[in-house]
Nucleic acid binder design. Sequence first.
RNA 1: GCCAGGGUAGCUCAGUGGUAGAGCAGGGGACUCAUAAGCCCUUGGUCGGGAGUUCGAAUCUCCCCCCUGGCACCA
Length: 554
Amino acid sequence: MPKTFFITTAIDYTNSPPHIGHAYEKVLADVIARYHRLKGDSVFFLTGVDQHGQKVQQSAAKAGVPPAEFVKEITQKFVDLWKILDVKYDEWAETTSERHKKVVQGILQRLFDAGQIYKDKQAGYYSVRQEQFLTDKERGPDGEFGSEWGQVEFREEENYYFRLSQHKDWLLSYLDNRKDAVIPNFRQTELRNAVEKLSGDLCISRPKSRLDWGIELPFDKDFVNYVWFDALTNYISFAGYDPKADNYEKQPQEFRDRWSKDTLQIIGKDILVPAHGIYWLIMLHAIGFPNDAMPQLLVHGWWNLGGAKMSKSAGNVIDPFVLADKYGAEALRFYLVSDIATGKDADFSEERVIERYNADLANSLGNLLNRTLSMVSKYVSGRLRTTAISLNDESKQIPAGEPISLPTRSGEPMSLPNAKELGLRELIENSPRIYVRAMESSLISLALVIPGEISEHCNRLVQNTAPWQLAEDPMQNELLSAVMYHLAEALRIIAVLISPVLPKAAHGIFDQLNWKMDLSGNDKRFSLADAEWGKLPDGHVVGKAVPLFPRIES
RNA sequence: GCCAGGGUAGCUCAGUGGUAGAGCAGGGGACUCAUAAGCCCUUGGUCGGGAGUUCGAAUCUCCCCCCUGGCACCA
């Protein structure tokens, strides 16, 4: 049994600086990782960069610097962004590192020795200028290669191939026997269909004459590894994998504690087929990983711009540094995981960033915190009193309603109580259970509905009990205290629930509530066990009100 | 071309057989603890088009149109 929750993201290609899509994937992973830490799990979160390959070599040449230097600069931008966005990983993967190189070469040698890798010769049309072989796709309408390719010549080239097709039947049976190998569901269907059509093996090398920015094949000094065994292997090489141990069972305890069928690999929809869904799973199988040590693939969608795909060539790339600077890391994190359904695409809009921030964070939650502390200070001298009064159906004279069914867009349906028909206490006491279900399915936007509902409910409670009137009547003292206590407890629990997405804001709420001050600023402060009613003690004195999410005025 | 996903209110999206929904935006009202926030009420849709099945279709079937992704096609 794994003792650690292991989560990975795709490693980013250091050919160009990060854009909003990179930021989304890492924030999503970070939120899931933080959720597991919140539950008390030990977590190993791995992310990093892919530094080898032809495009890097070309970009470096164009910039007039050695590839190693070029890669270092771009890598730093990714590291900087994760720091700004509070993406807290446990290990950082760089494919040019010695440690990684040893694993890649060790695996290649083992597969070569086992006859899984062979040399073959192929021929085709080659563009000298672009340094690449051309396919029919590159041919113009007249069947000729355009002038942009420069001189095109017929060439023969030897390369090494991995016996991919030998494992096709295994992959099909694996997918048929594990319904959640890939989530969302329809992506697994897509993968299954692609595997059916799989034929041929995988070219895994480039002659050094063409590409030398890569890991040398251990069994042939004239070639470097090409892409797959370099990029994909990072997931295990930075988790303690020993390339000399020829199967999973012989791996070091440290590695086996981390890597299991519960390992969650977050990738974009563009790299499921064939890279992760086919190449990676087959590679793992080929190096001795059993079916019950196959990772789960979580495939996310993309942020589009006005329905268009974001791309450098279209000139519509959104710079996450600019956004974080303008609106703050928390606002950006919140937007990226709340305004998209995990697995689906969404439209990115800066107006929406502001809209969601103002509506959900500033107006609803931030203002609730502010008005609550202000009232506690004014009406009960900043001191909370526990109470026997349970405010459960004050806002509407409606009994607790039937739970309504919420769609999960990418998985099984789940039910969420109709918050307007639940009392505040009832809502809060049911919250962790519902929240956990949404989070376990990686449906972050759905999970965030819960603290949102609590917040709205509290705002209604204030309106309907009018503490400013209660404060004028000594006979209403107990009810007044009860309202104040309910609001403070609700805020404390909201802070716990939002902490994976908004760690800084959660700290802010705790600080203002004057709760767990000895752990102020330390993420150990957050525990799902605290999302339980009644932890604020009788006589607790709250802190000073400071606007938590200042409105963004446009 | 093949395989998927999508086309529902101004915007972003829920809703898979039983009288069209939410959030935001827009309009009106009462309140004042608060970040001119919050609360209550409200305008707004021939559910991409067409045909069919059914007592009844956004939902099931067929055809078509448009958008998106993957593959076919990067040795």
